[in-house]
Design a protein around this nucleic acid. Structure first.
Length: 252
DNA sequence: AATTTTATCAACCGCCTAGTG
DNA sequence: TCACTAGGCGGTTGATAAAAT
């Protein structure tokens, strides 16, 4: 259901992403971060524009991105938030952990818009009810969500974790157990999340300037077609620690 | 079974904003 | 203040699957 791959006049690839491209992008970003989206594809060995890479990462490859059907709570939350902020999809997405603005936007246009319209036709005050239905029952749950979110101040994407694009449904809830279908985070889960986050903080601290280290371009490309790293100063111990932290995450 | 219509959603495009020199 | 750049956002497109005829 995507555009067939093709090359534009500048030799940049457009259209659907192949599994190989996904793997290259994921591997590069997980290892070096997205220090500059425009330059990144060159170093990652991709014939894509930076924007395309960014979009692919944000909407599909980023750890914690949830795909698949929306829960009723999510539906209600989107409707409610849309009433409040309109088409500010990024704002709405920020409130729904693991959902991207693009996905919410698509879902709104294909499902919820009609549902809201129908509800309005049946009962002009129905919309309000619809929104309040969720607000009542969701208050406690959302409080839990927000509380849990404090463990990841920048959201789940703050974590650098391998994920499989081929099985997004399975990895999402594994990655971060406070998704809609498991909106209630048990105290046990929370303490496990907290533990892992502590580990991650340690990890980040140990990396020091890993992600912010000034990039020094090196134009020698990997002849194997693989990606070339920007010349950042970090030692292999940091990477080792990354995998160690990943092993310690609660869902492992 | 064949054809047409509709629904879905990944990806693209263009605009806006913030940061920088 | 202006020009430029990168990142981000929202609207739109287009391919394909599913449903209807």
């Amino acid at each position: 259901m995507v555009r067939a791959p093709f090359f534009d006049k500048n030799g940049l690839k457009k259209g659907a992403w192949s599994p190989e491209e996904d793997e290259k992008l994921r591997a590069y970003v997980l290892r070096y971060g997205h220090w500059n989206w425009r330059e990144l594809p060159k170093f990652a060995g991709l014939s894509r524009c930076g924007k395309s890479c960014r979009l692919r990462w944000m909407n599909y490859l980023r750890p914690g991105v949830k795909h698949g059907s929306f829960s009723e709570q999510e539906d209600d939350m989107i409707i409610k938030l849309h009433q409040e902020v309109g088409n500010k999809w990024s704002l709405i997405a920020a409130k729904l952990t693991g959902r991207t603005d693009n996905e919410i936007k698509n879902y709104w246009h294909s499902h919820l818009k009609k549902r809201v319209k129908r509800k309005q036709m049946q009962n002009p005050s129905g919309l309000k009810e619809l929104a309040s239905e969720s607000s009542q029952s969701d208050v406690r749950e959302n409080a839990e969500l927000l509380e849990a979110q404090n463990f990841f101040p920048n959201g789940p994407s703050h974590l650098i974790l391998e994920s499989s694009p081929l099985s997004p449904e399975t990895h999402s809830s594994k990655f971060f157990p406070m998704t809609s279908d498991s909106a209630l985070v048990t105290p046990c889960d929370k303490s496990r999340i907290a533990e892992s986050f502590t580990s991650f903080q340690t990890f980040e601290e140990s990396l020091g300037d890993f992600w912010t280290e000034p990039f020094v371009a090196d134009n020698s490309y990997n002849q194997d077609g693989g990606f070339m790293p920007p010349c950042v100063s970090h030692d292999d111990d940091s990477i080792e620690l990354l995998y160690q932290v990943m092993q310690e995450l609660p869902w492992n």
